[in-house]
Amino acid sequence: MIKKRYKDNKVAYLLLAPWLVGFIGMWLIPMCISIYYSFTDFNLLNDPQFIGAANYVRAFTQDKTFYKALKVTFLYVLLLVPLRLAFALFVAMLLNKKHKGLGLYRTLYYIPSIIGGSIAVSVVWKQIFGNKGVIMTLLGVFGIAQKTSLIGNPKTALYVIILMGVWQFGSSMLIFLSALKQIPGSLYESAKVDGANGFVTFWKITIPMLTPTIFFNLILQIINGFRVFTESYVITDGGPLDSTLSYVLYLYRRAFTYFDMGYSCALAWVLVAIVSVFTVILFKTQKNWVYYEAGRE
């Protein structure tokens, strides 16, 4: 028995080896190096000099751009996450009904999530909302003259990037669709017998039964929202007037434009702390609003 168990363990470790090598080499070691660099003055050209928590003090007490990038990112997450989840749930409920071509519709709605974060799509999005793009042309046709494009106006540029983020709702939609199919039909039949209308059924049955899925999607989308980079970098490059300067884009600039790698690593760990705080808050408060059919967890 012992020999057989040992042999089985060897096979398990052998199968896990590719993942373990990737995790240690691509995640664990770089993570430890990043933590060390965050406490150093390192510019990629000279040897790192240990300076303690000076990089973190600098971020919170001296760097005004840090707060500006943080503000832009918080606003992006605050608007993007509820809009994307609401739209994903709306489309999922439409696709949950039986009609012809359902598989095709699911595929079409999911495609933006596959290609939405790519450089190519960001370039296309930039052209659509640019000075000579489709949107500006349509506004001109309807007599709405604009001297500056939507991505060239500090008041509207961020909303263009948010709109692109909402457009990538496919993954959340599929998760919602899967959860909708798990809701027992008997609940809706009982509500119908009791005379409940569509709104009451949605609010009293659908939403409570979907709360675990909403919780899961909420965490994923908050994490993804704080990591926004490609759209801000390609479409506006953080402009105009830093109105779309996302936190990760600012982190990238400090590292690879100014070669301030030590400070950039500190900024990265500040972001990890922020995301961790949001995640912990959600987990701590889930007992107040997340319903589990098998009992509260």
Rank of each mutant, 00 (worst) to 15 (best):
I2K: 12
I2R: 11
I2F: 06
I2D: 15
K4R: 15
K4Q: 11
R5Y: 10
R5F: 03
Y6E: 13
K7D: 14
D8P: 01
N9L: 07
K10E: 15
V11R: 12
A12M: 08
A12D: 05
A12Y: 05
L14D: 12
L14A: 13
L14H: 13
L14T: 06
L15D: 00
L16T: 04
A17F: 02
P18Y: 02
P18I: 00
W19S: 14
L20A: 12
L20H: 10
V21R: 01
G22C: 03
G22M: 05
F23H: 10
I24L: 12
I24G: 12
G25K: 03
M26C: 08
M26K: 09
M26A: 14
L28H: 10
L28I: 02
L28A: 11
L28M: 11
L28D: 14
I29Q: 12
I29R: 07
I29S: 09
I29M: 06
P30T: 04
P30M: 02
P30A: 03
M31L: 10
C32E: 14
C32K: 11
C32Y: 07
C32S: 13
C32L: 07
I33G: 08
S34K: 06
I35W: 07
I35T: 08
I35H: 02
Y36L: 07
Y37K: 08
Y37G: 00
S38I: 01
F39Q: 09
T40D: 11
T40E: 05
D41I: 00
F42L: 06
N43C: 03
N43E: 12
N43Y: 01
N43D: 15
L44K: 10
L45Y: 12
L45D: 15
N46T: 04
N46M: 05
D47K: 11
P48E: 11
Q49C: 06
Q49D: 10
F50W: 10
F50I: 03
F50L: 06
I51L: 07
G52Q: 07
G52C: 03
G52K: 07
A53Q: 06
A53V: 03
A53Y: 09
A54H: 09
A54Y: 05
A54C: 05
A54M: 07
Y56G: 06
Y56N: 12
Y56T: 08
Y56V: 02
V57S: 14
V57G: 10
V57P: 01
R58I: 00
A59M: 09
A59Q: 11
F60Y: 14
F60E: 06
F60S: 06
Q62W: 00
Q62E: 15
